[in-house]
Structure formats: structure tokens, C-alpha cells
Write a protein that binds this DNA or RNA. Structure first.
Length: 129
DNA sequence: ACAGTGACAACAT
DNA sequence: TATGTTGCCACTG
């Protein structure tokens, strides 16, 4: 009852549900998946996408919609990637300040309800039925 | 099997 | 507000 082999897939499934123009945080996603302390692992999961970007199955994941709990783009020591993420978000209508900060009062995604989470847990696929 | 790592978060200065 | 520290988790050699 713990470590499900598909933790990454579950993360991806949730991220795919984040609507355009909204953002969520690593911690919130971890929370949705029933692992409130796994925020760091969520970031790790998204980081792993860079190795899968050639796989079309992972090409549609809006990773840019995930920021840290303060509403700031969290890839601090990767300036280029951070700016890239900011641009992607702006292109979606999300206001990102020069300091890479986003107003969560406006753009925070409410998240999924338990029924949808339950579905993801079963299929660890989420994307599509 | 085990230690190291990293797109986090909460708390302390 | 801006750093630094500590705890956490899943994944990797």
C-alpha cells in the first residue's frame, strides 16, 4: 500500500487536467494523489519528462502549469528553462511577473474532486478513456 | 540493498 | 522579503 509503480503516471494524469490559463503546485498535486509529503517527488516526475519528450504519449503534458507553493516558477538554477516556462504561461493568458511570480489568488486551479482522483488511481492513465 | 539526488514545502533567522 | 535548514518521497546507479 504504498509506492505504487505508477506514481509518475498519476502525476501526469493530474497535470493533464490542469486547464489552460490556470496553474497548480507540486504540493497540491502530491496532496491530490494522497501523498501530502511527496511534493518533491512530483517535481522529480515532471523533470523526467525531459527524457520522454520524444515519446508522443507524454507530449501533451502541460508541465508549465505547475509552480511552487508560493506561485513562483521553481527552476531557479535553470534560468533559461524558467523563462521558457514563463513564456509558455503568458501565451496561455497567465500573468507572470518579472520575478517569475504568479498570483495564485487569480490563477490557482481548484483541483480535482475525489471521484476523478479515484479514476486516476485506478487507471493511472487519466488522460483518456 | 543502499546512498545520493532533485522543477518541493514548512519553518527558522 | 530574503536566505538557510530540515524533513520528505520516489527514482537512479
Amino acid at each position: 500500500m504504498n509506492t505504487q509503480p505508477n506514481f509518475y503516471e498519476q502525476v501526469y494524469a493530474v497535470v493533464r487536467r490542469i486547464p489552460q490559463g490556470k496553474v497548480s503546485s507540486y504540493g497540491r498535486i502530491a496532496n491530490m494523489l494522497g501523498r501530502p509529503r511527496a511534493a518533491r517527488a512530483v517535481g522529480y516526475a515532471l523533470n523526467a519528462l525531459s527524457d520522454k519528450k520524444d515519446d508522443p504519449a507524454y507530449a501533451d503534458i502541460p508541465w508549465q502549469r505547475v509552480v511552487n507553493s508560493q506561485g513562483r516558477i521553481s527552476i531557479v538554477n535553470r534560468e533559461q528553462s524558467a523563462n521558457h516556462q514563463a513564456e509558455l504561461l503568458r501565451a496561455e493568458g497567465v500573468a507572470v511577473s518579472k520575478k517569475l511570480r504568479i498570483n495564485l489568488d487569480i490563477y490557482l486551479w481548484e483541483g480535482l474532486h475525489w471521484v476523478e482522483i479515484d479514476d486516476i488511481m485506478k487507471n493511472a492513465n487519466g488522460a483518456k478513456p
